[in-house]
Amino acid sequence: MPHMPRSFMPTDQAVADLRRRHKIANVLQSLLLLGGMVLLLALCGMILAGVEGVLWALLGGAISLLFSPRLSPRMVLGMFGARRLTYAEAPVLFDALAAIARRAELPAVPELWYVASPALNAFAVGSRRRSAIAVTDGLLRALSLRELAGVLAHEVSHVRNNDLTVMGLADTVTSLTRLMSVFGMALLILNLPLLMMRQEAVPWLLVLLLIAAPWIGVLLQLALSRTREFDADLDAAHLTGDPEGVASALARIERLQHSPWEGLRFPGRRRAQNIPSLLRTHPETEERVRRLMALRTPPPVLPGLDAHPLHAHPLHARPHLAMPAAVRRPRYRIGGYWY
């Protein structure tokens, strides 16, 4: 990570002001994107059935959210072959997670789960009251304690900000938009002979809108996902008091994932830098690191981790793990390689 001279580092007040501006911008952008997705759904409903179509579209979305299946965190983690970690296997991680959860004011500390995969990944499932964070073996062995604290804080931020619920809502709206688009195109095809017999003009503008609506919805959903990632980075830096640690974790994961050895292990994986920015679920790492480093103030500390202060450990120290390294080979599934 680049080192910034102490004289050029921003003051605590400047960092607080910068964080506040970033936070407001992220919230406003999320509201605009989510509002745009709902507006797109309502527009599809209006094309199909006028004002009643708008009401039916919004009602369908509300019913879908109300009766959508609520999978427990354990069931979701079971799909990834994860198992719950014990305190004896990684005590410093448990202490760090508990301290971060306290600072985030979560009603319950997320459970810590382990995926026996050499891939570098971490994800959160559940809600504020009942959540879990899964980390892969590769991530635990590649990052330092300070970097792992940043990753845990990032996932805790997703839980605290209800990002899982927000992205679930976005997915429901996108799915309904796609469904209404298909339904509208089917109605148009069935009515084409009647339009031709009556020599009526085909509403090509509405046709193009119905065709483009699902793709526009997906792009808005991806943009929303990137905004929520920026927000989670921002909150992770605040929860740990160490934006450089969070930035270092992101940079190390990016570097290891794009190494030549990683390309040999995952021959079917598409390189992230070849994906256009609009089609990314996560922002570009360089931009995330830049924003985090702008929040850096000396000295980096982890407030609230008094029982096990991670900053007391060497920067590159790895956590002690009471399990063998994972050697499971990837299996190809729909969507790519996974373990």
Rank of each mutant, 00 (worst) to 15 (best):
R226T: 02
L205T: 11
L220M: 10
F183V: 06
W215L: 14
I189W: 12
G263Q: 06
E200Q: 11
A251H: 11
R288V: 14
V202K: 00
P300N: 03
V173G: 02
M196I: 10
E284L: 14
S248Q: 11
L264C: 00
V289H: 00
R255C: 13
P260E: 09
R296T: 11
G241K: 15
E200P: 01
S259C: 06
L190M: 08
E244Y: 00
R255E: 13
G184T: 10
T285C: 12
L292R: 13
Q199I: 15
L278R: 04
S277T: 12
P299K: 08
L292T: 05
W215A: 13
M185K: 11
W204D: 03
T281K: 02
R228I: 05
R252Y: 03
A186H: 10
S248L: 02
G217N: 00
R255N: 05
L295W: 04
R252C: 02
R290E: 07
L295N: 09
A212W: 05
I211N: 01
G184D: 10
L187T: 13
T240E: 04
H258Q: 15
R198N: 09
G304I: 12
R226I: 02
R178L: 04
A236V: 10
L208F: 07
G263D: 05
A201D: 11
L179R: 00
E286W: 14
G184S: 11
S259L: 02
R288C: 05
A232I: 14
R228Q: 13
P243A: 05
P193F: 07
E229T: 03
R228K: 08
I211E: 02
N191A: 11
L188P: 01
D242L: 00
Q273T: 15
M197P: 03
L250G: 01
L176K: 00
A237W: 01
E286Y: 11
R252G: 04
